[in-house]
Design a protein around this nucleic acid. Structure first.
Lengths: 181, 181
DNA sequence: GCCAACATGTAACTAGTTACATGATTAC
DNA sequence: GTAATCATGTAACTAGTTACATGTTGGC
């Protein structure tokens, strides 16, 4: 998956691993993140496959390995984009695993954990709301639909966090009534 | 992560890999799934670490390798449960990656893909709603809080799918107004 | 006889995480 | 000088996926 993200981003503009990491952190990061180590190794693998080519640029003492997409890379990316998803993506949520098994825990500990998660989620929701995608990424926009769709992914993030907060509030409220059982 | 799920389930009741796969599919499956191959290999690794012990049971021609938790397994599991999460779990959603990069696609293709996803999500939402956790898993319940929390994870699934459908409907509606641009 | 369900595994691979490791430049 | 940012990588490991592989029992 990361491979297609890198391909897609390089397709907008050639970039170095470092830059790609930053772009991911500020754009696809909340629905698909990656560590720099994975980005660098994946780029190398992609070059081996002929999907991208790199050139080592030197300005002053700093070195940057800049990756550009090849024709093969572009056609692979387009083939991926044109073959629609026919299944539901799998959801993995560690907190739910913890909640599922928390029946034997001290209810106050569970409440404290959920309240901390609530605070983290609330902060993230505010970040997403504050961030209007246009100003950050509109510069890359090749067409109007791009902006619409980037906005849509950000809206998803906002809805997701709002739903999560909502759920946390409900669970917290329900546990509070059970406190002295 | 899977290790703790297996430990937690075996802690309720000794079970074979096959049974654990089935339990996961019907309980934690929508927030943490696993293939049978991973379950079998993880159980073996857990046995090497002394967290579980297996015994090979034979009834008729069928063989079942039944795993039970050890004292070390129980204390590792409890230590994990008692150390609260202090970060937000990472969300990975392939469809959002696809949407993010779909600006160059034929809008009708994007709409068709989103509508298919809508149908899949709607079906899943109905499954979750129909499934009342009590009837399926209450048998394992060691206390009242367990039932409350299992119900809470199911409620999360329902809320999540409802939010997702809502978002899909919004994006679809927005794209439909762009159709002949 | 055949198919579904029971039951368990290995092999090969891709993906992802965590830690280690290095070195330059710029602003204070 | 020292901390932050720029910039790139490797190593060791854990996790997860896909495909291959095998054999039984019970119902139709």
């Amino acid at each position: 998956m990361l491979m297609y993200i890198l391909l897609g981003l390089i397709n907008y503009n050639p970039a170095s691993g470092y830059e790609l990491k930053q772009i991911i952190d500020r754009s696809t990061g909340y629905f698909w993140h990656a560590h720099h180590s994975q980005i660098y190794t994946t780029l190398r693998r992609m070059e081996d496959k002929g999907l991208v080519i790199s050139t080592l640029e030197e300005s002053d003492g700093r070195e940057r390995r800049v990756y550009d997409i090849t024709d093969k890379g572009r056609s692979d990316f387009e083939a991926w984009l044109e073959s629609p998803m026919t299944t539901i993506g799998q959801y993995k949520e560690e907190l739910l695993v913890r909640v599922f098994f928390s029946g034997s825990r001290d209810i106050e500990d569970v409440l404290a954990e959920l309240q901390m998660q609530r605070a983290l989620r609330a902060r993230r929701l505010e970040e997403y709301k504050a961030r209007r995608m246009q100003e950050t990424y509109a510069k890359h926009a090749s067409n109007e639909l791009d902006i619409e769709l980037w906005q849509a992914t950000l809206d998803f993030g906002i809805k997701h966090e709002a739903m999560y907060l909502d759920w946390l509030d409900e669970v917290i409220a329900r546990l509070q009534t059970k406190r002295h059982s």
